[in-house]
Each structure stands twice: as C-alpha cells, then as structure tokens.
C-alpha cells in the first residue's frame, strides 16, 4: 500500500467530487433557488433518463466499443409504448407495453452487437446504421405522428414519487446498484474489463469475448428501452422525433466520469458523478436564465477538458 499521498493523487481520486461540490456552491451563491428541496429533487428526476443510458454506456465503453444508437432506441421505446397502449386501450395494465418496449430495444441492440462481435463491423459504424434504422422504425410505426399517452397508470412511472422522492430517480438508483454489483462482484463484470483491456489476451484466457460483447449490447438496449419508457411517461407522449443527441450526453457522462474510450477502465461511481455534473450544468444555466444554446457549448468544453485530463494523467503514469 502506497502511503505517498499528495495533491495530485487526491485530485485524481476525488477530483470529480471536488468539481461537483464547487459547482453546487457556485450555483447556490448565484441563484438562491438552487438549494431548495424542489429544485434538487427536480434535478434528480431530470438526470435519471440520461443516468440509465450512461450505466449501459459505461459497460459498452469498458469493452472498448461504443453505441451511438441509444437516442433512436429511446424514441423507438416511446413509440412502442404508444402503439401497444393504443391497441389495448381500456385496461389499466401497462405491463405489456413496458415489456414490449424493452424487448424490442434489446433485440435491436443485439443486432448492433452481432454486427460488432461476429461481423467485426467497427462499433461506430454498426451503431450508426442502427441509429438510422431505429429512427426510421419509430417513424414508420407511428406514421410520423406522436402518440398521446392518456393512461394515468403509465404516467406514474415518470411523474410519480415515493414520499418526496421522484420515482424515475429511484429507478435510476436501483438500476445503478444492480449494475454496480454486476460490474464489480461477478465474473461477468471481470470479463467486461478483460475484453476491453486486451481482447486477444482475454480470448487466450478462455473468455468467450463475442458473447461478452453481445451481452453488453443487449443490456444497453434494455436500458435504452427503460429510459425511453420514463421519458414517454414524463412528457405524456410517444414521439418518434424525440431524444436526438441523447447518446452524446450518455457518452459524455461516462467520459467525464473517467471511463476510457479505449476500453479496459471505468467505474460506475464516476459515471454517476458525470451524470450529476451534466445535469447540474443544464439546471444551473436554466436557473441563471442563460440561453439554452449556450448549454451545448459549455457541455462540449467540459467533455474536451475531462478527456484531456484523463489522457494526461494516464500518460504520466504509463
């Protein structure tokens, strides 16, 4: 155990927490309404959808791959919910709609995963094609028109609370815990790291790398479906044109959280902080009445900054 603790190691370990706390203090000073319970809970509700996507994306990135189709899958999920609810209108049972959305998204992601694992299509290209296909599917199924979701039962998923705590945030946290356990305490988690760290060595150690990659994409699809359900429920419609660019927020959260796009390293704790930092930027800029177009520039700068720090600290060590 190294007892050589200095500022740079502290910063490397807790840098994101420090940044997050500083941001909170700054925003709190500038806008008194920031530190109100309503606003904080609202931030949690807002980040839950990106958070769920970012969990799956962390797995995908750790295996050394990427998935840019998740925004389109979120749209597919909402449209499937709309379609199923429409065809079984009258009942209050929303379970079939939710299940259908998750299954369809999982299958679509498994197709991307097969392209990557078996046909060796570069993941960026494989998921680029899926991004277009899924968006097209959403438009075809819905005929280009958003479904209005009137089911009160369904609205609970995105708008409900348990006590004061928003239901979507709870779903996010439970999902996060489950996936944290999978990544850190199971053999599958180890295999995910191994495949991304060195796929040849993983193969030579008897790991079925193709299956690992396929599973990781499958999970990404299921989580995209879940995220899409929450979004549809919150806004009360299943729209084919929604969630464009969501993949970028998810990737950004992972990268800010220290997950390397080269694979092999990354932690879900970091991803959580990344999700909160991105959520906070949006919240702060809107509290401060700053033009929403600026949000994109700020977000972009923060991502670039995070990656430069990541590469720099790695180069110094290695």
């Amino acid at each position: 155990m190294s007892k050589n603790i200095n500022i740079s190691t502290i910063f490397r370990k807790f840098g994101l927490v420090i940044i997050l706390v500083c941001m909170c203090i700054l925003v709190g000073v500038l806008s008194p309404s920031f530190f109100t319970a309503t606003n904080i809970l609202n931030v949690f509700r807002q980040v839950s959808m990106n958070g769920i996507l970012a969990i799956g994306m962390t797995f995908v990135l750790i295996t050394g791959n990427i998935d840019i189709s998740v925004g389109s899958l979120v749209a597919v999920s909402g449209v499937i919910v709309g379609k199923v609810l429409e065809s079984i209108s009258g009942t209050t049972n929303v379970f079939p709609a939710v299940l259908a959305a998750i299954i369809v998204c999982t299958c679509l992601s498994l197709i991307s995963g097969s392209m990557v694992a078996f046909f060796k299509v570069p993941p960026m290209i494989a998921t680029l094609s899926m991004m277009t296909i899924a968006r097209g599917m959403a438009l075809v199924i819905s005929n280009g028109q958003p479904y209005i979701l009137r089911s009160k039962m369904f609205a609970v998923i995105g708008k409900g609370s348990i006590g004061a705590f928003p239901l979507p945030a709870l779903i996010f946290i439970v999902t996060l815990i489950i996936f944290w356990v999978v990544l850190n305490m199971t053999t599958f988690g180890r295999k995910v790291y191994a495949v991304g760290g060195n796929i040849k060595a993983a193969t030579a150690s008897g790991i079925n790398c193709q299956r690992v990659i396929l599973t990781v994409y499958g999970l990404m699809g299921a989580l995209s479906g879940l995220s899409g359900i929450i979004l549809a429920s919150r806004i009360g419609s299943g729209s084919p044109a929604i969630a464009e660019g969501y993949e970028m927020d998810a990737i950004a959260a992972c990268v800010i959280g220290g997950t390397s796009t080269l694979g092999g390293t990354g932690k879900l704790q970091g991803t959580l902080l990344g999700v909160l930092i991105i959520g906070l930027i949006s919240n702060a800029l809107s509290l401060l009445n700053i033009n929403s177009y600026w949000q994109q520039i700020v977000k972009g700068l923060i991502i670039a900054f995070a990656v430069i720090i990541d590469t720099y600290t790695k180069a110094k060590r290695g």
């Binding site: 053999t187 030579a204 092999g264």
Partner: peptide, 26 residues
C-alpha cells in the same frame, strides 16, 4: 498474455474465475 491496464489479481484469476464463484458472485 496480459491485460496491462488491469491488476495482478485480475490477470491471475482470469482463466479460472469459475473456481471462485459463489452463485453468480465472485
């Protein structure tokens, strides 16, 4: 042979992780 970015521990157990399984957990 190795996954250079991962720990000694993980590298050694990589090929025989099933030996340490308790249910689905490691």
């Amino acid at each position: 042979g190795l996954i250079l970015c991962r720990s000694i521990n993980e590298n050694i157990s990589l090929a025989h992780m099933n030996q340490f399984c308790k249910g689905i957990f490691l």
